[in-house]
């Protein structure tokens, strides 16, 4: 695949991921991940996620637990989850630390509606994607909310 084709394929994959999350198709979302992948929602700047407090720092086990919680019927906030629509764009390929992965950054604007309140969350999202036979697997997804160091409200879905 040429660089241009690979970038287009990565953008389509990111759009698919966004669509799965907006429609709460969480089992399919789990299948997009590499077993060693990390799903990270950090607070503030910096890359030393493991040694800092984040909103989420999920390995495969934690992702499965998170999905189980959201779909269990046992969480009062998740049982009344917000409706969400997210749009990704402004894609840019970044230098990769390894030859065999695609490192891509995009903008994400997410609007949620819950109990008469419409909220917007904007974020820079970085994906490290590993090509495979049927597309990609996510090795790393980092969602940097532009208000990550501000006061948030409870999130009843996945960013």
């Amino acid at each position: 695949m040429s660089g241009v084709d690979q970038a287009k394929a990565a953008e389509a994959f990111i759009a698919l991921e966004a669509d799965l999350l907006d429609h709460a198709e969480y089992q399919q979302w789990l299948d997009l991940w590499d077993d060693g992948g990390l799903y990270i929602i950090p607070i503030g700047e910096g890359d030393d996620f493991e040694d800092r407090l984040n909103y989420a720092y999920d390995d495969a086990a934690m992702r499965r637990m998170r999905v189980a919680r959201l779909t269990s019927g046992q969480s009062m906030s998740a049982n009344e989850a917000a409706r969400t629509v997210r749009v990704t764009g402004r894609y840019r390929l970044l230098d990769s630390s390894a030859d065999d992965v695609v490192n891509i950054r995009c903008a994400q604007t997410l609007t949620e509606y819950r109990r008469e309140t419409l909220r917007t969350y904007a974020a820079n999202v970085t994906f490290v994607l590993k090509p495979c036979d049927d597309g990609f697997r996510i090795q790393k997804k980092v969602v940097r909310l532009i208000n990550s160091d501000g006061a948030l409200a409870g999130l009843t879905y996945l960013l």
Binding site: D51, S75, S77, A78, E80, G154, L155
Partner: peptide, 30 residues
């Protein structure tokens, strides 16, 4: 560092807007 990482991961597990506990607490208070 290993012990501190464990503490941070435990905090993330329950607390915060994406924790497994806090969003439900906040919903009950609302």
């Amino acid at each position: 560092p290993a012990a501190n990482r464990a503490r941070l991961r435990l905090h993330e597990h329950f607390q915060g807007p994406m924790g497994f506990g806090t969003p439900d607490d906040a919903d009950a208070w609302e």
